[in-house]
Amino acid sequence: MVKRQYLPILVTVALFILVFLAGSFRYTGFFSMQVLTNLLIDNAFLLIVAVGMTFVIVSGGIDLSVGSMVALTTMLSATLIEQLGWPPSLVIPCVLLFGALFGLGMGAIIHYFNIQPFIVTLAGMFLARGLCYVISINTITIDNAFYKDMAMTKIQLPGGGFISISVIIALAVVLLAIYLAHYTRFGRNTYAIGGSEQSSLLMGLPVARTKMLVYAFSGFCSALGGVVFTFYMLSGYGLHAVGLELDAIAAVVIGGTLLTGGVGYVAGTVFGVLIQGVIQTIINFEGTLSSWWTRIVIGILLFVFILLQRIINVRASKSRAV
């Protein structure tokens, strides 16, 4: 008997396998280790950002600032390295710290002024995007050896295929996040707050600290996603990662996390990202389809998954009514 709370994630995993197999039967050369690893390579930054978003959504909030934060990180990194000549060993900690503090600030506003996360992070999104253009309205290309190394290094896998350093960073973030979510008080408090903030408060949990840390973690993840994105693009630009926040939210929801908070798994988010990636890959293989079809399919999937969650919830509340 499968526990009810695992049902959405199982559906997600099954769907990923199904789509991947469908692609494999349809296109020659699809069923390979490299297609799989490319999914990770091309979506490493999205994965990192979506992991942070998972925590926010599990806590019952939302973070719209992540896409802009990625862009701002690429911009800051490019400026500090190319124009001010800072070494990467200093730049990367700085932008990560900046991202975390930015998130912490939004979290503090959300909690202490009791404002909707939607509106606070929307403001954060405009602020971060605007700051990009204050720095420069042009693309700043990065010509730093370290960044180039990070971008080019290929790590061979035993079964054929290779991955990039970004993938290793992303997978490390995923593992860390799973540990955080399930084996630390911070993680469990996040689930509790998502379940019922009022109850959490009455149970004496540190609601204020946890909420702020959740947004700080999301800010940190989006900055780290920005660093990885910088490796990927080797440039800073204010128009990078437009709409990424929506991809991240879609990945989290398709991964089985409830938008109402309290229920969700980081592992689900991984598959949410992979499903988006595999659909993109199929559309590339098809060749004749516009890449916007990815969006259409993702849109349909979102509808289906939200309906699925609804049905599971309704059935659960019925089965309990004794």
Partner: peptide
């Protein structure tokens, strides 16, 4: 109204 977290 039981003040616990029903999701946990």
């Amino acid at each position: 109204e039981v003040n616990l977290c029903s999701n946990l």
